[in-house]
Amino acid sequence: MKLLIPHVPVWCIVMIWAIPAHSKLEDDNNASAKPSFLGDVAIGETIDDIISPSDVCKEIVALIGSAISNFTLCSVTNARPIHLCEWCVENYIKVVEVHRDFLAKVDEAGNPCKEYFLNLDRVEIVSDAYKYVEDLWAKGKCNSCFRTLPNGTLTNNATEEVRQFVTDYERTKGCFDDWLNANITGLNLTACDACKPLYDQMNNKYMEIGELYGENVCVDVVDTMNITRELWSELFQCVPERKVEFWLHIGFGIIAIIPLIFYFFAYVLSTKQEARVLQQHRLAEVFANTSASGMSDLSGYHSSRLQESTRSRSMPTTEPSDNCDNRVT
C-alpha cells in the first residue's frame, strides 16, 4: 500500500491530461458514442471498470503477448546453431500482424485500444515487448533473407539465393557426414578433395549473397557459412598448405642484399664531400697585425681579457672539418 501512494498523483496527472484529447476525438468521430474512460460515468460502474481496459482490448493485448512469447520461445530454442530467421519468420510475421491489429483496434465504447496501453507510464510494457522482437529481428538482419511484397510486407518465402545457399549447405553437410563416417576407417584425409567442389560452390554462393546485400546478410546465412568454414578448416583440416615458394625466397634474398651492396658502393665510389670553411675576419686578427706594427693602445677593447679568451678558445680553423655536426653555413 505504501508503495502505491506515490503513484496516485502520477495517475491523476496523466488522466487529466488525457481527458481533453479523448473528448475531442469523440466529438469528431461519433456524437452518439459514450465518452470513455473517466469521461461520463455510467450508472453501476465501479472504479475497476473505469480504470481497466475493456475486454476487447484485453483480448488483443493477450494475443500480442502470446505471439511475442511464441516468437521468444522459437528464437531461444533456435539460438545455436542459429536459425532465427528461417524458423521463426512465421512467429515474427504473426507478432507484426497482431501488433498492427492492436494499433487499429477500437473497443465497443469507441476508444482506440492503444490509448489504454501506450504512453501512460514509464515501463511501457506492451511497446517494449514489441520493440524487443523488432530489435532482435533487425539485429539478425533477417529481412534480407525473405522476399517482401511490393507493398513492403514481409513474406515467409526465402529469397532465391538463400534457398540455393541452403541447398548447397545441405549437400555439403551430406558430404561431410559421409566422410565423417569414413573417419572411422581413417580415410578423412581425402575429405578435402571429395567435398571441395560442393564446399566451393557453397562458398561462391555466399560471396554472391554478400555482394548483393553487403553488410546486411541475414544472420542464418552468415552463421551457417561460418560453421561450415570452421568444420572445413578445424575438423577436416583443409587449410591451404604452405608451399615452398622457392623463387619468392630468392627474391627476398636478392632484395635484402641490395641495400648492403648499394651502401657499400656508395661508400667506396663517391668522393667524400669536403667542407669549405669560410674564413672569418675577427678583431683579434686586426690586433695581431696592428700590434706587430707597434700599435698597442687596446684599452678600449678589453684587450687583456680578449687576448686571453682568444687563446683559450680556439678560433675558427681553416682546415676542412669532417665532423658534420660542427658546421654552420
Binding site: F252, I255, F262, A266, S270
Partner: peptide, 22 residues
C-alpha cells in the same frame, strides 16, 4: 657525405621502397 650524386639519391629511395615491400 657519400650520397651526393642525384641519381644515387633516387636509387637509394628505390632501394628503400623495394625493401619496404620485402
Amino acid at each position: 657525405r657519400y650520397i651526393t650524386k642525384k641519381y644515387v639519391k633516387v636509387l637509394e629511395t628505390v632501394v628503400v621502397a623495394a625493401c619496404t615491400a620485402t
